[in-house]
């Protein structure tokens, strides 16, 4: 992992090894989940979720279907939960990130995350964005990188005159874009977004959605959303998860995954069709 790191973008590095882009090296994260447990409770069963490079992948499904759990297992955020246990492999840049030799801290530095609730640190806007640069020992021009990240997050014009006031003084939508700027400042390969708009009003939501289309030019994005219209608006590929309550347990799994238009217009599974029609949620 470390060797690949030294190159400018790890995505290019992977392509260089094989030359022409093939189906296989178009995948940024290849998650082969056998099962995810919280203690004895099996939260997710057999699901294969490939995240395609340079695209936005949307995760949709009813509550309790494990879509957030799957997303959070892609950068080992779930390791914060002591009872979490993962069976399976998640391949990223040619490595299994669940290999015991891999430090989850490094994984999270390459695969950034934006959360449901805007969660800026109790520090200035500038320091929030520079945070990732600091912990990654960034050697370049910090001011410039902070400005770039804030511009990429479509927040620069609103905050350029108050960079040193508290990040917590911003509105909810601005805070969420600040969190996006903070996540992308250290140049991660993949950006995971866990229902990033669910705490925002419709106008702020639109801004963040518009921003996502810009983000995918530089980053691979995976987003969990409760909102099917949002998935249709932003996602290139959509993964539909559902929850199986047949054995008296509630276990999430991937039902089907495909190009967003195909999945919404012509789903292969009956369950997907029902969900899209709004027959259950």
């Amino acid at each position: 992992m470390k060797n690949n790191m030294t190159k400018t973008t790890p995505l290019d590095a992977m392509e260089q090894t094989t030359g022409v882009p093939t189906e296989e090296n178009q995948i940024a994260i290849d998650a082969n989940i056998e099962a995810i447990y919280y203690g004895k409770f099996r939260a997710v069963r057999q699901s294969h979720v490939p995240i395609r490079k340079g695209e936005i992948t949307g995760f949709i499904g009813p509550s309790g279907c494990g879509k957030s759990t799957v997303l959070r297992s892609l950068n080992r955020m779930n390791d914060l939960i002591p009872t979490f246990k993962m069976k399976g492999h998640v391949h990223f840049m040619g490595q299994d990130i669940y290999d015991p030799a891999i430090d989850p801290v490094v994984v999270r530095r390459h695969i950034g995350m934006v959360f449901q609730q805007p969660n800026p640190f109790a520090m200035s806007i500038y320091d929030n964005v520079a945070f990732g640069l600091k912990i990654n020992r960034f050697k370049g021009d910090v001011n410039q990188r902070v400005e770039e990240a804030l511009r990429e997050a479509a927040l620069w014009d609103e905050v350029k005159d108050k960079l040193h006031s508290s990040g917590l003084a911003l509105s909810g939508g601005q805070q969420q874009r600040l969190c996006i700027a903070r996540a992308i400042a250290p140049n991660p390969t993949v950006l995971l977004m866990d229902e990033p708009c669910s705490a925002l009003d419709p106008i702020a939501t639109r801004k963040v959605e518009k921003l996502m289309h810009e983000l995918k030019k530089h980053y691979t994005v995976a987003i969990v959303t409760h909102n099917m219209q949002q998935a249709q608006r932003v996602a290139d590929t959509t993964a539909f998860f559902s929850v199986d309550i047949s054995d008296g347990e509630r276990c999430g799994y991937l039902v089907e995954m495909g190009k967003t238009e195909e999945l919404f217009e012509d789903p292969k599974q009956e369950l997907t069709r029902k969900y899209i029609r709004g027959e259950f949620s």
Binding site: N75, R109, G112, F115, Q117, N119, F121, A122, C179
Partner: peptide, 24 residues
Amino acid sequence: KVKEAAYGMGTTRREAIMLVMLPT
């Protein structure tokens, strides 16, 4: 969510405590 934010940025435990939790 503050703890999540810190670890989500890829901090080590010491960094999370010294840079985020203590100031908060």
